[in-house]
Design a protein around this nucleic acid. Structure first.
Lengths: 341, 341
DNA sequence: ACAAATTATGCAAACGATTGTTTGAATATT
DNA sequence: AATATTCAAACAATCGTTTGCATAATTTGT
């Protein structure tokens, strides 16, 4: 392994010390302008690059933030990551990514790694399985800033950047009602995850507001996958009084239902209306295109990162208050646009 | 910032030295079993966690690999990353991700960061803009293993993990011919990117093999975006002798064309057949579902990482030979299944 | 012109591990 | 009993920076 140029190589060559070089490179005011120029020129010439490992060890900061998501390859998370990376890069930070595939074991492993590598902060969206939080408490105990986005640990008093999911599904369901649908079913997710519980709540609220009685048969809990959508719609359509619209807490699950309905002769949106959640990219590609709820994922990522930087720059007094709830946006497409009856 | 427990805290408590602790924790054979047990117990009790910054500085390895992709939120890349992360994690390595959005400037920034943070290796898929390679040469000059995947720098003698894109598009186009399509157009991408050049080549080969004359009007260069697909198909259909099938080097571009065709009254696959490339998730969701070419992205990620680990474990003599070309797989869906004429 | 303030640089101790080289004790060999 | 071999642990240097403090050189104030 070829030796890389170090700060002391440069120091020798300029007949000065490492401290001067170090300061010069970082534009420390106590170094004369002329010296700074000499140093930075030599550095460029010798192709010097700071050894972050050393710098970080000494300064106690890793200039790295760890991000934990269930799935990298979901538009929503990919966009959040994108947003995080964007602002992190601007601040000179790197982003390390860890994927849990919704497994709590993997989530724990991620945390361990992050703690070992001394990331300066952890941004996390917890997995479906996650119903115990020792691993996350660890992070706080170690005094590492912990920020939740989207799927949060509610028992924690950490900051969190979330959508107003109640509002989102309220809008989605209200829209279906506006379009004249009468019996709206919901694909609901695990109750212990805030976002799914909230989405169900929004559904309930919307029906409630119009004085529509809740029919428990129309509330279907599943794991929100494509396959689950297929299975659930099958069951629903067997009811003697089947729904005329589906509000799904996930786009994937919605598409499963949509496909089953199409191949079984139902017309969408004429016979059945569908609204999904998350505004995945494919929602605009499929046919009929799927009405969905956009979560401003990129913004959420940006804001999560921004919150982290605000936090570490602050005097850690005004910690608690800048949690944020972002308003989601209903994107109306074909799957729910029925002519009014 | 609360002080974390260090190796020397443990040493003091056990009346021994840091070297013994360090070795004990790593199960070094020259430490007695009893000692190892004592140490690991205390470590657990005190909740000790190795400070990777220090360990890495001393050992000269960052236990980190840097991955550069154009877009995180493309199924293909997300899956590759997934594969990389999977095997990296198994080897105790972290994955740092950098997104270039196809901009060469961002690509350069990524490389700089990676060099500073002393990643142990760089896995990269170059951006559309990338036509100069100084920044990548830098990596090799610094003796950091560099491995290309999918979009490679061909002038380099670095290892690369790619698809056999010539074969992939050969199959795609041959399939269209088998289905009875006669005038097949291609959406081709930038010629300086290996994959797009190869995909075009496969197209040419397939036509050639059947003795079909190439019509230059049917070869359309664009940036392969959705919008480009819309624009290009518009132009193509204005020809006095328009195509009856499209082979697109990208799924996104294919969908753009597909939508335009649908909304303009063309029947797919009856009037026009379409084949895309990459097997993005949405290809199976859209209607008609899109025939595409699967690139075994997850495998590609795994293999890229595996190649890296093989490399650093070897004596660096058998470096050159394990580049790999993975055979893509044609996934036939509705958009190209025309009844034979 | 002399003490005081300012500016620029050097010194040396960290940061927290890893690792090559002793050392000392215990065990084996002859 | 004297020497050689093993085993386990200690010593000390090192990785490449950053940073508080001391110092030398220069400028300023009066």
């Amino acid at each position: 392994m070829a030796k890389r140029v170090t700060i002391s190589d440069l120091a020798k060559e300029l007949n000065t010390t490492t401290s001067t070089i170090s300061r010069a490179l970082r534009n420390h005011p106590s170094i004369s302008i002329s010296m700074r120029k000499k140093v930075s020129e030599l550095a460029k010439q010798r192709n010097y690059q700071v050894n972050s490992m050393a710098a970080n060890l000494r300064s106690g900061k890793s200039m790295t933030i760890g991000v934990i998501v269930p799935h990298i390859n979901r538009d929503f998370f990919a966009n959040v990551i994108s947003g995080i990376e964007e602002v992190a890069k601007k601040e000179g930070y790197s982003v390390v990514i860890c994927q849990t595939k919704d497994k709590i074991e993997k989530e724990k492993k991620c945390i361990e790694t992050f703690l070992r590598t001394r990331v300066d902060g952890v941004l996390v969206s917890v997995g479906l399985e996650t119903d115990t939080f020792d691993h996350l408490d660890q992070v706080k105990k170690m005094n590492v800033p912990l920020i939740f986005f989207d799927r949060v640990q509610e028992s924690s008093n950490s900051m969190s950047i979330v959508n107003d999911d109640v509002e989102g599904s309220f809008q989605g369901v209200s829209h279906l009602l506006d379009e004249g649908y009468k019996r709206i079913a919901i694909f609901a997710g695990p109750e212990h995850i805030n976002i799914y519980r909230n989405r169900k709540q929004g559904y309930l609220n919307a029906l409630d507001k119009r004085g529509i009685k809740i029919d428990k048969k129309l509330i279907v809990f599943n794991n929100l996958s494509y396959d689950a959508g297929v299975e659930s719609i099958k069951e629903l359509m067997k009811l003697q009084n089947p729904p005329d619209a589906i509000f799904s807490s996930s786009d994937y699950c919605a598409v499963g239902a949509l496909h089953w309905l199409k191949t079984n002769g139902y017309k969408i949106p004429e016979d059945i209306g569908i609204v999904g959640y998350s505004n995945e990219k494919f929602t605009s590609f499929i046919s009929p295109s799927l009405t969905s709820i956009d979560q401003h994922s990129l913004e959420m990522g940006r804001y999560s990162a921004k919150t982290f930087f605000d936090l570490i720059k602050s005097d850690k007094k005004d910690i608690i208050l800048n949690s944020l709830s972002i308003n989601p946006k209903l994107i109306i497409r074909e799957s729910s646009k029925r002519k009014r009856i």
